[in-house]
């Protein structure tokens, strides 16, 4: 068992050398999470925008459903995806279990409710603000949605970053559907879990530092985007 100081020195050394194994794990983590965010965005942004604008009687139910799914434990999502992708599952013939694709599916399902909810929350006040003016300009439903998505772009970037943050830090779902197979489905979080249990604290800590650095970068970006949005809003409201 190494001391914390020894582990930290070894970890920093690993990051400094940036060897092939470390590189592979970090790149796969980024690839899986970025893919999940992009797929979730394609589905989640229009759905969130629709929820912000619709008067459908289903709206209340769907909002409650989204909020419920936001709090889903990742292991439950992992379990569901596992059941779907396993040989007895409906998607079994695709043979996707224990592949990066399975991990992308799990992470997409995990962050989709977050993206839908944050998009709805970002666009709801904009819908209230622009609703009458867009009616006067005779905008169709599609034109309305696209306009609101563009007007709320700063808030939506924050939502995407929040989704990415959740995806890359997630371990429960990806370990179930990915299996943490070396050189195939091993990502930062699953490696940390495995290496810690093996007592290889240097690699675990090194990856932990990279993960924290990525989280710090994301939060800084969220803060910067938030500040620029506030500037716009303040300027706009001060002049009214």
């Amino acid at each position: 068992m190494q001391s914390f100081a020894d582990a930290m020195i070894a970890a920093l050394n690993l990051i400094w050398e940036f060897d092939a194994d470390l590189r592979e794990i970090i790149f796969l983590s980024l690839k899986v999470s970025v893919s999940a965010v992009l797929i979730a965005a394609v589905v989640g942004l229009p759905l969130g925008a629709w929820l912000a604008t619709t008067r459908s009687p289903l709206r209340g139910f769907l909002v409650a459903l989204t909020s419920t799914f936001m709090g889903l434990p990742p292991v439950v999502v992992g379990l569901v995806v596992y059941l779907l992708l396993s040989n007895v599952g409906v998607l079994g013939p695709l043979q996707l279990l224990y592949t990066p694709t399975a991990m992308i599916i799990a992470q997409t399902l995990l962050i989709l409710p977050i993206l839908i909810a944050l998009t709805r929350e970002t666009l709801s006040p904009l819908q209230a603000h622009f609703h009458q003016q867009l009616s006067l300009l005779n905008a169709t439903t599609l034109q309305r949605l696209l306009t609101l998505l563009r007007e709320g772009r700063h808030g939506l970037v924050t939502a995407l970053l929040a989704g990415f943050g959740r995806a890359i830090a997630e371990v429960g779902a990806v370990i179930i559907v990915g299996g943490n197979i070396n050189h195939v489905t091993r990502v930062m979080t699953t490696t940390i879990a495995l290496e810690t249990s093996k007592g290889n604290l240097a690699l675990a800590l090194g990856l932990g530092i990279v993960l924290v650095a990525i989280a710090l970068l994301i939060n800084t970006l969220v803060l910067l985007v938030g500040m620029s949005t506030r500037d716009d809003t303040t300027a706009a409201s001060a002049l009214r």
Binding site: H129, F130, Q132, Q133, T147, R150, E151, D232, A236, R240
Partner: peptide, 8 residues
């Protein structure tokens, strides 16, 4: 409208 609604 009383308060102009303009796009960003």
């Amino acid at each position: 409208l009383q308060k102009p609604v303009l796009l960003r």
